[in-house]
Design a protein around this nucleic acid. Structure first.
Lengths: 251, 251
DNA sequence: CGAAGGATTGATAAGTATCAACACGGGTGG
DNA sequence: CCACCCGTGTTGATACTTATCAATCCTTCG
């Protein structure tokens, strides 16, 4: 294991999540690093660091689920089954990947930027689980988090108009950045238009048109294809699924 | 606590799920009761039985999350936020409900049939958690299960045509029945057309028309509004999201 | 500089949302 | 027991929106 470090310069796997039960977080909706430095060091002993180039696959649906991955840097897309046109989630640093059923991966996961990740063998992780109640608790927290994100994704997909979908998508990204203190007034989209289309349930041309429409109406401005800024917040929020972000306890 | 029993005549809370890691289940995709009789008895000591009439709400989004619910009989719908037109899941016996963020429920949950449920206080459940590693493990299994269901729901919502959505929805219900050994060649829909519309992201008239179209094409037959049978399996499967059910490891 | 993949834009047609009227069915009260 | 009534579901007509197919533009990388 090399000396891979996170954004705070600390080594070892990291799990970012909001506590599902404890009220009164310092900042509402802000995610915390759940693992202590000791736990991260302990887990680091099990794991190896792997790197993936943009476009490379971490694993495919149907393969034996030998590994759990923990994203350190970069972004990956999670596709349902092996159909790349069905994106069910984007994963960022601090997220876990490797969902399986009866020992078989049920997703295909692909890097959409250069990615660094920790890789832990499931078998050893399970024995480690047996001895570490706290770790299990943290995994539960993280799964709660993922469930909330999946629900919000469903809300997005349930929207009937293209502008609602794209606006909701942008709000997801903004809340995501905010929850990890990276909010800079500008929303960064690491994925390409085609990935956005597959995530929001639209075609690529429709996504392109919708961004153009939002810009034309003065709701957002775009520095380049991957950066947008919300310029008319009132109009923007009218387009977003009513109260969904707050109600869903994003992220 | 009264002597509430499950379908097998055993008392106490029940968690149904597929093991995410162990291969070689007796029947592929079949859910098991995760809790031992002893664990169920132990949990029963914490819980009380509650009953809800059709249409009654178990809890609302925004309320303090004091309780976790375990469905014993009946079906509930889980709505994102407090918007009843955003159904993110239907829950059946053996499922858990009470997802929260920072101590606040993020869903509104409503009975769509008469419902019996166990109700356990979160505070006590957390202390019980600390002493029972197995129980935590089971909760993790169940959350994996829910995550898979949520992903499959996203696949459904991502479908572009109405017949794909409805066919995928029917296949979800069929797989659901199959996974608990209730499959009888006929699919039962406990929810009304309006709930289906809110779940698949369509309007009520569109749902109605789509069922009519499937019947007219001879793909399904309908005994009454709540029971359908697939009569042309080949045509049916062509309408379903390609390979999604198998790939997603349903349920 | 050229090529290849990603993104935008255009024209057309298919499909669903919408609005509205009507049929059905189950429960209630006479 | 029957009639009525209200909630649920079906059906119809129209307008809007996005999927689709296709051509062009832009950008990035070799």
């Amino acid at each position: 294991v090399t000396g891979e470090t996170d954004a705070f310069g600390r080594p070892g796997p990291a799990i970012l999540a909001v506590d599902p039960w404890a009220p009164g977080n310092p900042v509402k909706g802000e995610m915390r690093q759940l693992l202590t430095d000791e736990e991260r060091a302990e887990l680091a002993a099990l794991t190896s660091v792997v790197r993936f180039k943009k476009g490379e696959k971490l694993f495919r649906s149907g393969e034996r689920a030998h590994w759990i991955f923990n994203i350190v840097s970069g972004v990956v897309k999670t596709c349902a089954g092996d159909d790349e046109r069905q994106i069910v989630a984007f994963l960022f640093p601090g997220d876990l990947s490797g969902l399986s059923s009866e020992g078989i991966y049920i997703n295909s996961v692909q890097a959409i930027t250069p990615v660094t990740a920790y890789q832990a063998p499931v078998a050893e992780l399970r024995t480690r689980f047996a001895n570490n109640a706290r770790l299990r608790q943290h995994v539960i927290y993280k799964l709660f988090q993922e469930l909330r994100r999946a629900q919000y994704h469903a809300v997005l997909l349930g929207q009937k108009t293209a502008v609602s979908k794209i606006a909701t998508f942008l709000q997801m990204l903004e809340e995501h950045e905010r929850s990890r203190g990276e909010h800079a007034g500008e929303i960064h989209m690491p994925m390409d238009r085609s990935d956005i289309a597959d995530y929001v349930g639209m075609t690529l041309p429709a996504v392109s048109r919708t961004f153009a429409a939002l810009i034309k109406r003065g709701v957002i401005t775009s520095r380049d294809r991957r950066h947008v800024t919300i310029t008319d917040l009132a109009a923007f929020e009218k387009m977003v699924a009513v109260g969904a972000a707050r109600d869903a306890g994003l992220p």
